[in-house]
Nucleic acid binder design. Structure first.
Length: 443
DNA sequence: GCGATCAGTT
DNA sequence: CACAACTGATCGC
């Protein structure tokens, strides 16, 4: 099977149809308002959010896959034929339960049956999760998934965390136990809305967000819960990158304030290993230095590592294991349900790629030999193994030549105007409503 | 001058 | 180490 048919979360190569799982920036790299390589398939919610992320984008390129669970047929030119013969590709979108609009894509065609999870969370308890499970089972009742392209972000047994429902209640408990404090919660441009809704409903309070985020909330249909007026609430959701120890210490010179970091990442591990100052005794009893080693590939023997409790790693900052990615056991459940013949991980940003076959190869139909390659993954090698479908992760930029290296060295000598650079930066900040803390705490 | 891209930080 | 996103620098048109 040749390239040139479909791409998922990849925008650079030549394909006939492009698929976007969700609007997080690491999945839209290469997309721009001027991008016009072909039809772009996504969920209805992603399409609704799309113009705010890509103003001036030619919206006639968007193809909405709606509803979830329905097959859609595309007629594409056969890449294997020099004649203009056509083949049919069928595609279904299924709720990925990651961030608003996020979907998985299930494909059927002459290349077989492929399932792309995109980023996903495979919880079991909620009604929404059960609907998704039923839908997937129904879609697969007559098919075997030949290749599962899997969100392997937390594909290691050391990643254990609770449902988002439970984690959201942990956040509420922290807020309730600090009745006199302002609360700062770190979020991204999309995602974790359910957490904020839970806080708002349970505590009957509005939640402050920055102006750009309020527009997103309105697009998502939340009109009364969020506000940009600080006087209306003591709970504020702020961009994650503006959330740090210095910010919290600054705010505490004005009002008592705590920060809450909802994340599946083991932040405590990081801060401990860096030897940062830590406060409180919660940590020490709970935590042994946890070097789960991707390099040696051994299983983690520490059942307490990142086990999903609230952690206080700074005087003012709590971390709560609220994750929009599946934990290890959820990934396992998902693979057992799908029973793919083979699978590949889609997470490439990591320098420490964990091949899902290492832990789950035995669950695959082909019962492939366990791969021990937990070490650094060479993108180029993977690229060559990807046939008709192009993935975000299977990308080779075709290394820098010696010529361009020399050019780079030369141009390092050229000085640029500092005025120019800082103006660009300031514009960017204003447009994105980024630096909110300074102005905000004065209001 | 502008957009695309990469590396570095949080 | 990791997420998702910003920042600044560079490259090429």
């Amino acid at each position: 099977m040749e390239k040139g048919l479909i791409s998922v979360d990849r925008w650079t190569s030549q394909s006939q149809a492009y698929f976007l799982t969700h609007l997080h920036s690491d999945h839209t790299q290469g997309l721009s308002p001027t991008w016009a390589k072909g039809p772009l398939f996504c969920s209805r919610l992603t399409a609704n959010l799309f113009p705010s992320k890509f103003p001036n984008f030619n919206l006639s390129l968007l193809r909405i896959l709606d509803p979830f669970g329905a097959w859609h047929s595309l007629s594409l030119l056969s890449p294997s034929s020099t004649l203009q013969s056509r083949i049919t590709v069928e595609v279904m979108a299924i709720d990925a339960h990651h961030c608003p609009g996020a979907v998985m894509f299930l494909f059927r065609g002459e290349f077989g049956c492929l399932l792309f999870t995109g980023d996903f969370r495979w919880e079991t308890a909620s009604k929404r999760a059960k609907v998704g499970r039923t839908m997937l089972l129904d879609a697969l009742k007559d098919d075997v998934v030949d290749i599962l392209y899997l969100d392997n972000t937390y594909c290691n047994p050391s990643y254990i965390f609770p449902s988002r429902q439970a984690a959201a209640q942990q956040v509420v408990d922290i807020i309730v136990s600090h009745p006199e404090h302002d609360i700062i919660i770190a979020i991204d441009t999309l995602g974790k809305e359910d957490l904020l809704l839970h806080i708002s409903r349970t505590l009957k309070i509005k939640i402050w967000v920055w102006p750009e985020r309020l527009r997103t909330m309105h697009l998502l249909g939340f009109h009364d819960i969020f506000t940009t007026k600080t006087s209306l609430t003591r709970v504020r959701a702020v961009p994650r990158y503006s959330f740090n120890i210095e910010t919290l210490e600054g705010l505490n010179t004005m009002r008592p304030t705590i920060g809450i970091m909802p994340s599946g990442l083991p932040w405590v591990t990081k801060s401990l290993e860096r030897g940062d100052k830590l406060f409180g005794s919660l940590l020490t009893s709970h935590y042994n230095k946890n070097k789960w080693s991707g390099n040696s590939g051994n299983h983690n023997d520490n059942p307490n590592a990142n086990s999903g409790s609230v952690e206080r790693f700074h005087k003012y900052i709590y971390t709560v294991p609220y994750s929009d990615h599946s934990c290890f056991s959820e990934i396992e459940d998902f693979i057992k349900l799908v029973q793919p013949t083979s699978m590949k991980g889609i997470v490439s940003s990591s320098s420490c790629y964990v091949d899902p076959l290492y832990y789950f190869g035995c669950l695959c139909g082909a019962n492939q030999p366990v791969q021990r390659s937990l070490h650094k993954h060479k993108r180029k090698e993977r690229d060559e193994r990807v046939p008709a479908v192009c993935l975000r992760t299977a990308f080779s930029s075709g290394g820098a030549s010696a010529e361009s290296e020399r050019t780079r060295e030369r141009t390092v000598m050229v000085k640029h105007s500092g005025i120019h650079v800082s103006r660009i930066s300031a514009l960017r900040r204003i447009q994105r409503g980024a630096k909110i803390m300074e102005d905000d705490c004065l209001n």
